[in-house]
Write a protein that binds this DNA or RNA. Structure first.
Length: 754
DNA sequence: TATAGGTCGCTTTTT
DNA sequence: GCGACCTATA
């Protein structure tokens, strides 16, 4: 047990306290993963069999990282018997064992978010509802919210609180859509992501003997990032640990940033109520960052009310102050940031891989990328389309899914006419209709075509039968052959190969490469499975792949590059130098969060996360104007800058004081409909500048907020800009004429000479 | 049935 | 600014 010496006192105590509930509050950079892995290693060394230990994470990446580190401590053999993985992967495994109890088969397939949205779209159409009102995103959001709170379709419809809310939002039919949605998932033998947790809860609720079995099995439970658990996940853990209370949760309430997808920070805040015999361990020493960064982060987070008291400290050197860059536009911000990186890389010998540029929204990345390209600075960008989201990959996966589960409706619809085999929308709609009437899957209709032959013409019947035979062949083969052989057959005989060969555009070539890449992965899977003696069937491959995203696929050649990503994506990572960009009101904090104290606290935690990613140096930047949704708007520095103890800042001059520097009473008029905002802003007329010295102004220099003079309309204020180049228009307010939109190419505008 | 052109809408994101 | 998605059109 010599590895215990590598821990500080608090870490060691947390590792050694194995019996009974433990709450580990792990501040940023305090060695959280180390505690988790050593704790598991310690349990194993005490002789507890690996299969009695359940360790849950939120991402595959975190699970893999932990697996790797435990392997190093106790050997790969021992580590591989642990039950370790994401909530979704672990419980989908269990659900496959117990599927029949819930009316599913163990071959159920998994709908990704796009499948769910497509199904909702189809239901909205079937129910003849307005698709402008029932947008798939919104509806799925409501259903997801319900599922994460264990509200099934019936309960949803019966809850007056919920249905009233829907009615108030003029969407009274969501309950009905939810019912259909759930019915059709079941009919398709599919579960969506939320189902994997919801159905687990149903399983444990309705089958106490099954629950007891898993309580027996999982004698020691560990949960990473506990502050990110939603109610559904929380309850699963609570039930599993009910009999023994050997539960250790690790997390940091200060880093809870996922409430928008159902995470409940109160799960960690209320741990003490659930387990009164709990013991708390606080990891307060930050090993990652300079004292300046840690203290700056502390000064920010102390503004939050709801938190577990702790004192994060660093014994590292003081380090540089936090630099604040001010730019006049988003473009210039990109320039300044890259300039700074360029200087540090060239004069201070920093590696490009030592830099991260973080932003609140993905939309900010483009302009930063441009700036990096101009400087020839290599970069990689996280987020964006993942490998498994690509069309060609999803098409092929749909073939796999249908081969394993013929009732999978979204897979069925995706490929019944891809590649083109002359089965058009009309035919597909008919099949769907018949399926609806008889309450069976579309596949079942396909298998009983002779009973409804009258509905189709002969040519359609032939085509449909051929498709059925094709899939049946794949299904048979997938029972017998290994995944790789079946996959190759599918790619060939489905016509995918031919379809892609006809496409010699660069996109087409890249599609072929992607298909090949997936085939390689399957080959790898089949060989490993064969060697290690577990199932090498397509169904097994699919189980794993459905829950996979490629956040983790580190591409070769990505070594010495600047990293760009959202702050959310950066959680859990660290970099020597971190740039936090776009620190402006209404962007960060996001404008829809400003009025809601809880949302604002979450934004502040997000800012805290951003700061604490850095080891040595933080640079923050803001612009005073920014393109947003195709419009230039003027912006002001975020309140978060002022919330940092100025002692830690370099280069930020707080704007002239009113009561508080950022207590702006008027909101920017540039983003709301003019009718709403014009009145308060312009109750007092603009001062006439027509009498002062004027000079003509270039269309490109016009910026919202400017007071300009127009020969006909007189003095006016630029409210917003729209259009580009020669079509650039300015919406302006004039004392005499009210609001006018002017094409800048023609408008003779003048600005006051200074 | 493919494609061009117009409209809409728009935090954060894992599984 | 841009992508997703719908619709018109030949």
């Amino acid at each position: 047990m010599d590895f215990l010496h590598e821990l500080n006192d608090n870490q060691r105590e947390a590792v050694l306290h194995t019996e009974g509930p433990a709450l580990v509050i792990a501040g940023a950079g305090s060695g959280k993963t180390r505690v988790l892995t050593y704790r598991i290693a310690h349990l194993l060394s005490k002789g507890i069999p690996a299969y009695h230990i359940l360790a849950l994470t939120f991402t595959n990446k975190a699970a893999r990282e932990m697996q790797k580190r435990i392997s190093q401590l106790v050997g790969a053999e021992n580590a591989s018997n642990l039950w370790m993985g994401t909530f979704h992967s672990i419980f989908s495994k269990i659900l496959r064992f117990e599927a029949d109890k819930l009316g599913y088969t163990s071959n159920f397939t998994i709908y990704d978010t796009q499948d769910s949205k497509n199904l909702i779209k189809a239901i909205v159409k079937d129910l003849k509802l307005d698709d402008k009102v029932y947008k798939p995103n919104d509806v799925l959001g409501r259903i997801s919210m319900a599922k994460n709170n264990l509200i099934v379709a019936q309960a949803y419809a019966q809850s007056s609180r919920i249905t009233n809310a829907d009615a108030a939002a003029r969407k009274p039919m969501i309950a009905e859509i939810y019912k259909h949605y759930q019915m059709r998932c079941k009919q398709s033998d599919t579960m969506d992501f939320d189902d994997l947790l919801l159905q687990t809860n149903i399983l444990f609720r309705d089958f106490p003997e099954v629950l007891a079995k898993y309580q027996q099995k999982f004698r020691y439970i560990l949960v990473d990032e506990y502050q990110d658990t939603n109610y559904s996940q929380y309850l699963i853990i609570k039930k599993l640990s009910e009999s023994h209370h050997n539960i250790c949760v690790v997390g940091d309430d200060a880093q809870s940033i996922y409430s928008f997808r159902g995470a409940r920070i109160e799960n960690i805040l209320n741990f003490r109520n659930d387990y009164p015999d709990f013991k708390i361990f606080k990891l307060e020493q930050n090993y990652r960052s300079t004292t300046t960064i840690v203290n700056a982060a502390n000064s920010i987070i102390s503004k939050n009310k709801e938190q577990i008291p702790k004192r994060i400290f660093s014994e590292n050197e003081e380090g540089e102050k936090i630099k604040v860059l001010r730019a006049l536009s988003d473009k210039e911000e990109g320039f300044q940031v890259t300039n700074e990186i360029f200087k540090m890389a060239n004069y201070e010998q920093e590696e490009y891989s030592d830099f991260a540029i973080l932003y609140r929204t993905n939309a900010q990345s483009r302009i930063l990328e441009e700036a990096l390209r101009k400087r020839n600075i290599p970069y990689k960008i996280y987020g964006g389309q993942s490998f498994y989201q690509r069309k060609e990959i999803k098409d092929l996966l749909a073939y796999f899914r249908l081969s394993v589960n013929q009732n999978d409706e979204e897979a069925f619809k995706r490929i019944i006419n891809y590649p083109r085999r002359g089965i058009g929308d009309t035919t597909i709609d008919k099949i769907r209709e018949i399926a609806q009437q008889h309450r069976v899957s579309m596949w079942t209709v396909l298998c009983n075509l002779e009973k409804v032959a009258g509905s189709f013409n002969n040519s359609s019947l032939t085509k449909l039968n051929n498709f059925r035979l094709l899939i049946e062949k794949f299904a048979e083969r997938s029972q017998e052959e290994n995944a790789y052989d079946v996959a190759c057959t599918i790619v060939q005989s489905s016509g995918i190969t031919d379809d892609l060969s006809n496409d010699s555009t660069p996109e087409g070539v890249s599609r072929k490469e992607n298909i090949q890449e997936l085939l390689n992965a399957i080959k790898d899977f089949s060989e490993t499975a064969y060697k290690e003696g577990f199932s090498d069937k397509l169904a097994t491959f699919l189980e794993g792949v459905a829950l996979l995203t490629d956040q983790d696929t580190e591409k070769p050649g990505d070594d010495n590059k600047v990293t760009l990503m959202t702050i959310h994506a950066a959680k859990g990572l660290e970099f020597p130098n971190v740039f936090i960009t776009g620190i402006e009101e209404e962007l960060f904090p996001a404008q829809q969060c400003a009025s809601n104290p809880q949302a604002l606290e979450e934004e502040r935690r997000l800012f805290y996360v951003a700061l604490t990613r850095a080891e040595k140096k933080v640079v923050m930047s803001y612009a005073t104007t920014r393109y947003r949704n195709g419009q230039i708007i003027s912006t002001r520095p975020s309140r978060f800058i002022a919330e940092i103890d100025p002692h830690f800042l370099d280069g930020f001059i707080a704007p002239r004081q009113e009561t508080s520097p950022f207590n702006f009473k008027t909101t920017s008029p540039f983003r709301k409909p003019v009718s709403e905002t014009l009145a308060p802003v312009h109750t007092t007329p603009l001062p006439d500048i027509g009498s002062s010295k004027l000079k003509p102004i270039e269309p490109n220099s016009v910026i919202p907020g400017m007071i300009l003079f127009h020969p006909t309309f007189g003095t006016g204020k630029v409210l917003s800009l729209e259009g580009l180049g020669v079509n650039k228009k300015a919406k302006m307010f004039f004392n005499k004429e009210g609001t006018k939109t002017l094409l800048l190419k023609f408008a003779k505008l003048f600005i006051q000479e200074d």
